[in-house]
Design a protein around this nucleic acid. Structure first.
Lengths: 89, 89
DNA sequence: ATGCATTTGTCCGTATGTATG
DNA sequence: TCATACATACGGACAAATGCA
């Protein structure tokens, strides 16, 4: 059972299933943000770290972050990282 | 015939071949560490230097260093460099 | 105390190839 | 045929830590 940086278990996402992998990643992180487990202003693991944690490709991680970004939950800053902007959508 | 900082010849790695470029770099350095040619505590060439020596992208060098790091052979320190931690895996 | 160079860390964008559905 | 997803690999820019002049 793989765990993320918060020590939470990560669901195994089957790429052949109905749920899109990048959406599963995005929803998992969105839930943590909405529950306040990821504080506003805190930094997410890097794209590469998230990719390794989840066992997914970097492109998939980037799509997930783009998804969160479009929901207004996070903001990616060039050279710094990706930060939580709001606690809820 | 390109040479590294130890004066050793570097194999030409064909990105289109079967052997992965980052693994070739990692294995080359790992061998030097295991043979004691790179002492514990010594610093590796910078990522940029390694990239230039091997004629590869920095990302490939970083991937190789990550590999060595996961084997417990080296440890990267922000702002300082990457250092040999143990002589063998 | 300030500035600069070096080095690692991170994000951005792109390309190629393979596999699956 | 096309979208999703994996892995590798390229190049670039910006940020942060370190060390030195």
């Amino acid at each position: 059972m793989a765990k993320d940086d918060l020590g939470q278990e990560l669901p195994e996402v089957d790429p052949s299933g109905q749920e899109l992998v990048y959406m599963a990643v995005a929803n998992h992180i969105a839930g943590q943000i909405e529950r306040g487990e990821r504080a506003v202003g805190s930094r997410l693991p890097s794209e590469l770290d998230l990719s390794n944690m989840w066992g997914v490709a970097r492109m998939t991680t980037r799509r997930a972050i783009r998804e969160l970004s479009e929901r207004g939950l996070v903001r990616a800053v060039h050279g710094k990282g990706t930060f939580v902007t709001r606690p809820d959508s």
